[in-house]
Design a protein around this nucleic acid. Sequence first.
DNA 1: ATTTACTTTCAATAATTACTGAAAGTTTAA
DNA 2: TTAAACTTTCAGTAATTATTGAAAGTAAAT
Lengths: 168, 168
Amino acid sequence: MKNQEAKQEFINLWGVLGSQWGINRSMAQIHALLLLSPDTLSTEDIMEALQLSRGNANMNIRELLNWNLVYKSFLPGERKEFFKAEHDIWTIATRIMNERKKRELVPAKKLVENIRAEKLTENNDESKHIQKTIADMDDFLGRIDQLSDLMLKAEQNIIFKKMLTLLK
Amino acid sequence: MKNQEAKQEFINLWGVLGSQWGINRSMAQIHALLLLSPDTLSTEDIMEALQLSRGNANMNIRELLNWNLVYKSFLPGERKEFFKAEHDIWTIATRIMNERKKRELVPAKKLVENIRAEKLTENNDESKHIQKTIADMDDFLGRIDQLSDLMLKAEQNIIFKKMLTLLK
DNA sequence: ATTTACTTTCAATAATTACTGAAAGTTTAA
DNA sequence: TTAAACTTTCAGTAATTATTGAAAGTAAAT
């Protein structure tokens, strides 16, 4: 198999996976392309390799920068921006988790907390059940929050590493 | 706040959250409605409460059954099916994880493994880099797989529980 | 066997989300 | 300054995904 074929297969796969997880195909593919490139790439390189429009390439590169998955890099003598991916897979995973936590989990928890804080005017079995369900959900979101903290610390966490190893 | 209002807020929130995580709005809302209902509901009840078409309601109830998040239930004397949700939040979470693992993670890992297994015909820095990237990704997917196992076992796992508590 | 009560399917349509490309904006260099 | 090189924006369009509702399918009751 040629390098280009392997790259292409991986890029496609990453695009499909991304879209299953709420990350759009172009963003995932750009990320995969940068992961596979030993060198930095320009917007033009990316447009060319993935056949994307300038607007699409630019927006998704911007988004990858926001997610801290991609860095800007300037080449001596070149005026335009080049990009390179964070290559450490664990760092990538924790960054993604952090971003999703910040953007979705934390706001969701706040909203559930707000509903939870409301007193229900009725006082019957249904209200009890509703309150319990909402409380459970709030607690659950708190747990997930903790769990993501745990993962963020996992690389420095020797006990956790051992637990993972034991499960192998 | 009236019961109905609290329910409605929670259902809306759950719908939004779901769609951020690749679960469609109707499915998430039906799930929320069933979670909030102390009693079982029929397809008609669900259509009525969420203003969904019969087709949409039916398809998404079916999907929730597939995910093991909702159970069928027959009422004595009634011919039609009624539905109730699994109410234990931890069970819900592990079921969702299990399903996503089965449907997405495992197949993805297989595909990455296939690409990894291919020998690259070229032999230069780029091929080395590609091979390393793909190998890292494969290992990473394996880790996630382990991690989901860990979570699946977490409720019975006292050490894990303590770690979560320490992180509070 | 036929009717009635219910469930499932699916082609058509609506809603949402992603992408394009040209124009406007910005920065650097001459 | 002005021009060239590059980046960003965004209205229009395309692609994807979700929803409807009527028709077909199935099972129970008469």
